[in-house]
Write a protein that binds this DNA or RNA. Sequence first.
DNA 1: ACAATAGGGATTTTT
DNA 2: TCCCTATTGT
Length: 722
Amino acid sequence: MNLSEILGDLNDKQSQSVILDNNKNALILAGAGSGKTRVLTHRIAYLVTQNSVNTDSILAVTFTNKAALEMRERLSLLLRRPIRSMWVGTFHGISHRMLRTHHIEANLSSQFQILDAQDQFRIIKRLMKENQIDETKYPVKKIQWFINQQKDEGVRPKDIDAGYNYFVKQSVKVFELYEGHCASNDLIDFAELLLRSYDLLKLNSDLLSHYQERFQHILVDEFQDTNTIQYKWIKLLSSKQNRVFCVGDDDQSIYGWRGAKIDNIHKLEKDFTPIQTIRLEQNYRSTGNILSASNALITNNKSRLGKSLWTDSGDGEKIDVYEARTEIDESDYVVSSIQTLLNDNIMARNCAILYRSNAQSRAFEERLIKYNIPYIIYGGLRFFERAEIKDAMCYLRLIENSSDNVAFERIVNFPTRGIGNATIEKIREFAANNGTNLFQSSVSIISSLPTRAANSLDGFVKLIENMRDASQNLNLSEKVALLIKDSGLIYHFSNDKTDKAGSKKENLEELIATAKRYIHDEESDLSETLGFISQATLDSSGGDDNTNTNKCVQLMTIHSAKGLEFPYVFLAGMEEDLFPSRQSKDEPRLIDEERRLCYVGMTRAMKKLTLSYAIKRFLHGQSIYAYPSRFIDEIPQHYKNSIKQKFGLSENDYKSNNSKNQNIFPESDSQLSVGANVKHAKFGYGTVLNFEGKGDSTRVQIKFKKAGTKWLISSYANLEFV
DNA sequence: ACAATAGGGATTTTT
DNA sequence: TCCCTATTGT
């Protein structure tokens, strides 16, 4: 690969960044849609092919697994070879890798487990209960938040002076208890991965210099999102001999509330000298109007590094601003606009509805169902966070490592097998007194238990032991298949009446497939199973079935849309107190972040952007009158096209429409049952998987033979039973 | 052990 | 309003 191939399709600024002097650090201020991933990957390709930098000497850090994966893929395409051994990963993934390799120096066993947010919550809650700390006064969520916040700042309990603040005092107490618990149980939470790997390097100068010498080039993506400990981690790894190359955009910093320090990007220029700053301002995504409007909006923020996006692709259409009467009206406007696009053969996946808070998705969902437009809502529980999947994973964990107390607690009596609280309390007590784990403790106390409890507990112990023996010679996916069956999970969820659609059972089956797909890193210090378990915690998004999503309109929060782009974007709920949110309105710092969020939302749009707001909105059980968002006013009028006229059906039309439809699907319809076969005019034949609600608002989930699985409102769907 | 019921809270969530 | 949790009753 030669230089012109690497620089071939890059603009001046991009090329400059890629071939930047090796003796300088770099800050690439990459605006939205300016090709930052391209610069990052081409920079690496340049170093490897033109500067003979060994791939082992490169460390590339991202925030999300998705970004890391994308970088890997693009790199192996560019370099035309696999880059398996290269250190490309998330902050957490890289930290994890270091801790596994140097677990002894990090004061961890080789089998340490990673806690996800749920596990962490459970532990904190139990610790508080055991120590009589009143949950109503000190909500677990808040304490958990406090602890994570401190860790993100690199702060340990001993560093905190609570003064006279009772909340902080209690939080620190729980923090200490929690730290003790994690230490004695070999547990690491997300924040701890970073903090501990930081300490590891800080306290072991040999290790530190090893990595400093090894990583000649450290590249960081989305630098504006780094928190204090991440910044310190990078700073620690940097040295006289190596160079950092940071890419970021201060205008797209939207995770300040999670500890991201926008100021890190400012500090960079002081802490990492000599440094060269390059601005990528040419945008390849949006039309001129969208960019100018976004630029105008973001100018209202103070203390920016300053950047102004431009494009040579023409002005495009103005931004539509729709004033709706209510959120129903709003969703009707948006969805009928989408319908119009679909009629023009625009693909559904090219349309996105973005909003500030998840609660806003409902109105759109209902309208999309009415129009029979396929959609997908992002957000909510991810695959590995689902209860049934966590249950199964905990069986896997306990089979693999009987000292995993977190797993033990979760599944000892699930599915229920007659092991009550009293028994579990005895197990805990014995374990605490004898310095052993819960599983071992169970084995020890069985003989001292009343017959009934003893039998139940004995059954559980034997179950785990048998599964362990039986899975000895099985591969990962066979192991998973065995466990979801023998544990009784499949049986339990097959009979779960609350899960009419059987999706939990399906998820468990999907877990087998996910295990099958798992590719184990041969160089890893972990067994295949432990590798799978760690990966599941570090990347909880697995298992999702993306086959139909490209036919769907996409609904998500603006936060989730960061890094994505769509030809047609609808930014909904542009109202004061919703966006910017009420909780942010009193603090200029928070308002600025809301404004950046709005900027991120607007710059997702490629061809056409539509903003909408409702005068009256039903929220939290009551109607609220709202003012249009200040952000709308901050966009100069000549980029906007205001639409105030009522679109589509009038209120009366709705009424007549509804009453007309009421007869189509009588309330007392006894034919509607799971498994019933139906025919739909457009989607053809299908089977009812699930339904909810009554009368007019009944929603039915149907698996169509050809059209896939859909939720429909029965009063609109006009179903025929066959 | 589970279902029914009452009460409280309701941005955003990369790992 | 809706959803999640904790409590209560069978």
